[in-house]
């Protein structure tokens, strides 16, 4: 029960933050990426504002255990692989095209009209085919 409450609290803070920061406005995201146009620095403030409490949280994990028990996530793998790079490039292309990433796409679903619903549907399709696509990608990477 405690686990579910904390998860709801976390999602609520995340949703509220995405909403008031303006990150569900696609022009703010595309404006940040558009260095040759009317550049909008808001996203940098959002990222900075989010990284500070998270940085402290990571420090606080040292020598402790999660509130609900269990253990904290293992240290990140050091190596860069083809999945990380290819996936990030594909994601960045979609992010630039529509100005939406997964968090804001969920947060804005109730007021983003049919376009928001279609985006969500397409995103879920992309997520569903990702495991198969990833296997193909691994085969290509192994052959080069």
């Amino acid at each position: 029960m405690q686990r579910l409450f904390l998860s709801l609290l976390s999602g609520s803070l995340f949703g509220a933050g995405l909403f008031i920061s303006g990150m569900t406005d696609t022009t703010k995201v595309q404006g940040w990426l558009d260095v040759f146009g009317n550049w909008d620095p808001t996203l940098a403030f959002v990222m900075g504002g989010a990284i500070v409490p998270m940085f402290i949280a990571w420090r606080l994990t040292q020598g402790r255990a999660p509130l609900v028990g269990g253990s904290f996530p293992a240290a990140p793998r050091p190596e860069m692989d083809h999945r990380l790079i290819t996936g990030s490039v594909l994601f960045g292309m979609g992010w630039g095209l529509a100005g939406l990433c997964p968090g804001p796409a969920i947060a804005s679903l109730s007021y983003n009209g049919s376009g928001g619903l279609i985006f969500m549907g397409a995103m879920l399709v992309g997520m569903a085919v990702a495991p198969k696509f990833g296997q193909q990608l691994d085969r290509v990477a192994a052959s080069v």
Partner: peptide, 15 residues
């Protein structure tokens, strides 16, 4: 919208 959605869903899961 469709192209962007598929790219975001696919890319984030691959990465």
């Amino acid at each position: 919208i469709i192209a962007a959605g598929i790219l975001v869903g696919l890319g984030t899961r691959i990465a």
